[in-house]
């Protein structure tokens, strides 16, 4: 009896399971073929070498040795890391007050209008937006014009275009909604009664923010950090259009290796190194945040 019942239950579960698996199969197989296989190919390529058009398939670590000892590659990797860390910090710091404003100071029925207002500029052509930053930051552009007109500077600032600075400004603009939205979502989840409780217990506004709001918003802040940090390291367009030679990043070198120098294995090696760097830094950020918020709980 019991055997028969558990057998039926097992069959029922398998039916349920196989239905789910059958449904998920098409997108999953697609991702296996077009994502897992190509990524595996990139890793494989990084252990090969290329001489003009022929690829030498003997396993070697030469590419990694060369990449890690060449000052140019190392500079590009570390600069990409520096730039995207700066972009992440600036974007998230600038975005937090905006998300806070929309969540705490805007009437509930007008919140989606505000979010809509924030996202509209980002549905315009990415290329054209980046190009327009080149116009805005130009030597004779509106930023320098305004500052000159206000008498704040004597002569146009040259360092704001074709440098790492312009890359940071442009990317901080490009990724703004990706930072605002997750922070907003986590702020929305905070129980408003906690604030009143904090205030009633005699904490100042600032202390309530530091001890209640900020720790509870951390998951959203972490999500924002990762969503901005991961793709910016691989950005190609912004460094090309506004970066000049000081703002070139690793994606530009990867493109050069694949398309110009015909050195796919070195391009693959640099891609793997960039992915490793992104992965490690992201993991460190996740662990640090978990420890910080976890530490707050145990106190």
């Amino acid at each position: 009896m019991a055997m028969a019942r558990s057998f039926d239950l097992g069959r029922f579960l398998r039916r349920e399971e196989s239905k789910g698996l059958a449904l998920i199969a098409p997108p999953f197989v697609y991702a296996l073929l077009l994502l897992a296989a190509p990524l595996a190919a990139i890793v494989l390529f990084s252990f090969w070498t290329q001489d003009f058009m022929t690829i030498n398939r003997t396993f070697t670590l030469d590419n990694y040795r060369e990449a890690l000892s060449d000052p140019l590659y190392m500079e590009l990797l570390s600069r990409s890391l520096r730039i995207s860390l700066a972009v992440t910090a600036i974007t998230v710091l600038l975005a937090f007050p905006v998300a806070y404003f929309v969540s705490f100071h805007v009437a509930p029925e007008r919140k989606s209008l505000w979010l809509f207002l924030i996202t509209i500029p980002f549905w315009t052509s990415y290329l054209i937006r980046v190009f327009l930053w080149r116009v805005i930051l130009a030597y004779d552009g509106p930023v320098n014009g305004t500052l000159l007109g206000l008498g704040l500077i004597e002569e146009p600032l040259a360092w704001i275009l074709y440098s790492a600075n312009s890359v940071v400004i442009t990317l901080a603009h490009a990724y703004a909604p990706f930072a605002i939205l997750p922070i907003f979502v986590s702020l929305e989840k905070i129980d408003r009664a906690l604030h009143e409780a904090g205030r009633d217990l005699g904490e100042s506004r600032v202390m309530v923010f530091l001890r209640v709001t900020l720790p509870l918003a951390m998951p959203g802040v972490l999500a924002a950090v990762l969503i901005v940090f991961i793709p910016t390291i691989g950005d190609y367009v912004t460094p090309r259009l506004v970066g000049g030679s000081d703002g070139t990043m690793i994606a530009n070198m990867i493109q050069t290796q694949f398309m110009r120098l015909n050195n796919a294995p070195m391009g693959a090696t640099l891609s793997v190194l960039a992915m490793l760097m992104v992965g490690i830094v992201s993991l460190v950020m996740i662990v640090l945040t978990m420890r910080w918020t976890g530490g707050g709980k145990s106190k």
């Binding site: 998920i24 997108p27 999953f28 991702a31 077009l34 994502l35 897992a36 296989a37 190509p38 990524l39 190919a41 990139i42 390529f45 990762l226 969503i227 991961i230 793709p231 390291i233 691989g234 950005d235 190609y236 994606a251 990867i254 493109q255 694949f258 796919a264 391009g267 693959a268 891609s271 960039a274 992915m275 992104v278």
Partner: peptide
Amino acid sequence: ILGFVMLPLVLPEIIVAVSLLVV
């Protein structure tokens, strides 16, 4: 499985592009 299908969301696009090109 779902995490893997969602992975392109957090992968730098240039990596997706070059890996497909290589294949």
